[in-house]
Design a protein around this nucleic acid. Sequence first.
DNA 1: TAAACGTGGAC
DNA 2: TGTCCAAGTTT
Length: 300
Amino acid sequence: MRATPEIPAVDDLPGLHGAVLSWFDEHARDLPWRGVDASPWSVMVSEFMLQQTPVARVLPVHATWLETWPTPAALAAASTGDAVRAWGRLGYPRRALRLHAAATAIVAEHGGEVPRSYEDLIALPGIGDYTAAAIASFAHGQRHVVLDTNVRRVIARVAAGQELPPRSVTAAERALAASLLPDAPADAATWNVGLMELGALVCSVASPACERCPVLDRCAWAAAGRPAYDGPARVAQTYAGTDRQCRGRLLAVVRDAEGPVALSTLEAAWAIADQRDRCLASLVEDGLLARVGPASYALP
DNA sequence: TAAACGTGGAC
DNA sequence: TGTCCAAGTTT
C-alpha cells in the first residue's frame, strides 16, 4: 500500500476549463472523425490509426477505409489481407489485423455496434486504456480520464510544472488528471479533446508556442521559467537495420504486388539471409503474410 | 517493466 | 544527415 500521491492544487478550475473549452471551440481542426455526423465506428477507426501515427497521414487512409467499410460488419466480412493492404503505409500493420479482429468481435458479441462501456471496449483486440477511454469519451460522450501523450504533457506543464510527464503513467499523474476533469460528461469529453488539441497545436514537445497558449497565465511550468526536464533520459529508438525495418520492407513488397510474390523476390529485398528468414517467419506467425506455395507469399 | 512493433516529416 | 517522434498496445 502506497501513500496517496500529492495532487497539486489548481486554484481556479472553472477558469481553466473555460479557457481550454473556449480555445478549442475557436481553434479546433475540422477533422472528419470529430464531425457531428461521425459514427462511433469512424471514431474507433481513427483511434486505431492515430496510435503513434500523425493526423496528416491518417486523414486519407481513414477516408478510404470508411468508404470501403462503413460499418464493423463490413470490415469483418473482408479478408485480413484486404485490411492490411488498405492500411497502406501507416505503419504498425498489426493494428490493421487488430482492427479487423475487433470488428469481428463487435459483430459476434455486440450486435455489430461499437460498445459503449469502457470495460467492453478495452476487452477488444488493439484497444488499451487510452483507446477505450477515448472512444467512450469522444464517440459516446462519457466522462473518462483520457491520457494520451498530449494530455499528459499539457497537464505535466500546466498543473505539475514539469516540462514532460514521467516515462509511464503514474498513479499521481492519473489522480491529477482525474482531479482536473470537468464534472459534466459533455464538458469532460471536450476537455479531453481540447487538451489533446492544445498539446498537438500549441504545447508541443520541442518548441511550445506559449505566446499562443490560452492557459499561459495559469501554467505552472511557464511560471517557473520553463525548467528543463530533469528525469531519466529517454532511450532513443534505432531503426536502420532492425527487424522492424526488415519486416516493413518485406511486407511492402507483398503489399504493393498484384498477386503472390516469389521467395526469390523477397530475398532480393533484404540482403541478410538469417534476418530475412526470421522476419519472414514472424510476419507469417503474426498473420500479416501467408505462405501460399512452396516458394511464394501473399497477403492473408 | 522494458522491449518490440513501421513510417515519413520536421529540424 | 541523423535524430526525434506522432491520438499506444502487447507480451
